[in-house]
Amino acid sequence: MEQTVSKIEELLEKPCYVIDFLPEQVKPSSRGQFFDVECYLLNSDKHFLLKDKFVNIIIKLMCYYHVSIQLDDWIDRPSLQILEDAINTIMNNHSGWLNILLPDETVLVVFEWDNLNLTVYNPSKEIQALMQKIACSEGLFWRKSDMI
Rank of each mutant, 00 (worst) to 15 (best):
C16M: 12
T119Y: 01
D45K: 11
A135Y: 00
V120G: 12
L61M: 11
V26Q: 11
W113V: 09
F48H: 13
D20P: 11
M62W: 00
V37D: 04
D85W: 02
W142A: 11
I8Y: 00
L41K: 07
I90K: 03
L80M: 13
E138M: 08
K144M: 10
D76K: 00
S30N: 10
I8K: 07
D85N: 14
N88H: 13
S30P: 14
H47Q: 08
I134F: 08
S137D: 13
I87W: 03
E138N: 13
K27H: 10
A135L: 02
Y40H: 08
L50V: 04
L108G: 12
W97S: 15
E38K: 15
N92D: 13
R77V: 05
I19L: 08
E10Y: 03
N56I: 01
V109L: 09
F54Q: 12
I82M: 06
N115D: 09
E2P: 00
I59W: 01
I58R: 09
Q25M: 08
G96R: 03
S44T: 14
S79Y: 01
D20M: 04
I90T: 06
K125T: 07
H94E: 12
S29H: 07
E2M: 03
V55Y: 00
V107G: 12
L49T: 09
V5A: 13
I58Q: 08
P103D: 05
Q33A: 10
S124G: 07
E9G: 06
D104M: 06
T119C: 12
L98W: 05
L118M: 06
I57A: 01
K46A: 15
E112N: 10
D104V: 00
Y64P: 11
L101G: 06
L98M: 09
Q132K: 11
R31E: 11
